[in-house]
Design a binder for these strands. Structure first.
Lengths: 108, 108
DNA sequence: CGGAATCCCTCAAGATACTG
DNA sequence: CAGTATCTTGAGGGATTCCG
């Protein structure tokens, strides 16, 4: 008999927070795009094929509220808005980079 | 000017495969539970609070089809079914472990 | 024990048009 | 340019019952 005691894993808190951040369909793509540095809204839109305005806005708002990215507005005309990863967000880099590596190794 | 060229990131293939595997609400919990070794269906059910039968079945089927876990049936009465990570699945360990660490560091 | 089969429902995600 | 504002759809997920 290999497993006498079944330990409880995946207590809600940690898992939920993680999935709230990277669980969305586009969150990882956005974070990944921001690894390369600060980006404007339209840059992100062009870097991530298939995303639409509404989803980009929504995810960026979510990431901002979760303390993953910061949003900086320049009062220009037309408006300029820049998004940057926070330290908390940058700490996701190793994990996400690893996941991408895994994906590339195992896709077909 | 910091970013002359906007590189395209997050091509669909890699990202889609990754999210098909760990994007589901319970996938990460299941994979995480299997890091500790082979588990029976009912063990997983007890290790992951909040999951229900249907979702566990569904995710395990998904993970099996994606080559993340293997399913072994023993013709006993009552039936015994064991789930184990494949090498491909075990290669997710570093990334997911990192994510959990991140979650624990940054939850509240 | 390890599922399969139903029913039900919310909400994530898409498309599109409009605006300061 | 960087977003709102609507409308719509389908799939993800939950609860429950039944079965070999």
């Amino acid at each position: 008999m290999r497993h006498k005691n079944v330990e409880i894993v995946a207590e809600k808190c940690a898992l939920q927070e993680i999935l709230d951040v990277i669980g969305g369909k586009w969150a990882m793509s956005i974070i990944y795009a921001l690894f390369s540095g600060t980006r404007r809204f339209s840059e992100l839109e062009r870097m991530i094929p298939g995303i639409n305005t509404r989803m980009l806005v929504k995810e960026l708002k979510n990431l901002t509220q979760n303390g993953i990215v910061t949003r900086k507005v320049y009062p220009t005309v037309p408006p300029t808005v820049e998004y940057t990863l926070t330290p908390k967000g940058r700490k996701l880099e190793p994990s996400i980079a690893e996941l991408y590596k895994w994906g590339q190794e195992y896709v077909k």
